[in-house]
C-alpha cells in the first residue's frame, strides 16, 4: 500500500513535466517560432539572479546560449550558487512554457517555469596565482620603469609631465 502511494505521489510530482520536450537553449534561439507557446524543458547553469517581489529572474546559460527563466521565489529557493569567475553556478532543469516574444515581459524571449529543480550543485573554481609569471611580470615592469626613468634623467627631460627636479 505504502509503495503504491509513493509511486502515485511520484507520478503526481512529475505531472507538470508531462508533455514537456527536452530542448537546448540553442534550439530555442535558433527556432523561436517553432517552439513558441510550447512546454519545454531546458537545462543550464545559473549565471544571474534578479529578485522581483515574489518572483525571480534566473539567467540560464546552456552551452554558451543564454535564456531568462521567470519563476517564483519558492521555486528558486534551492539555488545557492550563481556562476561567476570564481564559481560554476548551480545547474538547473526548468520546465515551462517558452515564449519567443513574451507579452508579459515586453516582448523578450523567456521561459515561465512551472517546475524547477537543481540537478547539479555549483562549486567554487580554484584560481591559483602563477607566482613565476607574477614575478617575471613585476621584473619586466620594474626593468621598463628603471630604463624609462634612467634615460629621462640622463637627458633631463620631464617624464609624464614631471621634470627631474620635481622628484
Amino acid at each position: 500500500m505504502k509503495r503504491t502511494l509513493l509511486c502515485l505521489l511520484l507520478c503526481l510530482s512529475l505531472l507538470p513535466c508531462a508533455g514537456a520536450t527536452p530542448v537546448s537553449v540553442e534550439d530555442l534561439v535558433r527556432g523561436p517560432q517553432e517552439w513558441d507557446g510550447r512546454t519545454v524543458t531546458v537545462t543550464g547553469e545559473v549565471v544571474g539572479r534578479l529578485e522581483r517581489g515574489g518572483h525571480v529572474w534566473l539567467n540560464l546559460l546552456d552551452n554558451g546560449w543564454p535564456l531568462g527563466i521567470w519563476c517564483t521565489k519558492e521555486q528558486a529557493e534551492g539555488i545557492r550558487v550563481v556562476g561567476d569567475y570564481f564559481h560554476i553556478g548551480d545547474r538547473v532543469e526548468a520546465t515551462g512554457v517558452f515564449r519567443a516574444r513574451c507579452p508579459e515581459h515586453g516582448g523578450e524571449p523567456d521561459l515561465h517555469a512551472e517546475n524547477l529543480r537543481v540537478v547539479l550543485e555549483g562549486r567554487r573554481v580554484p584560481r591559483p596565482v602563477n607566482l613565476l609569471l607574477l614575478a617575471l611580470s613585476l621584473l619586466l615592469l620594474g626593468a621598463a620603469l628603471s630604463a624609462a626613468l634612467t634615460l629621462r634623467f640622463r637627458r633631463k627631460e620631464p617624464f609624464l609631465g614631471y621634470s627631474p627636479e620635481s622628484f
Binding site: 584560481r127 591559483p128 596565482v129 602563477n130 609569471l133 607574477l134 617575471l136 611580470s137 613585476l138 619586466l140 615592469l141 620594474g142 626593468a143 621598463a144 620603469l145 630604463a147 624609462a148 634615460l151
Partner: peptide
C-alpha cells in the same frame, strides 16, 4: 591570478615606449 596579465602588459608597453 589576473595581476600578472596587467603587470606584464604595462611593463611590455613601457619598455616599447622607452
Amino acid at each position: 591570478d589576473t595581476l600578472s596579465y596587467f603587470f606584464f602588459t604595462s611593463g611590455f608597453t613601457l619598455l616599447l615606449a622607452t
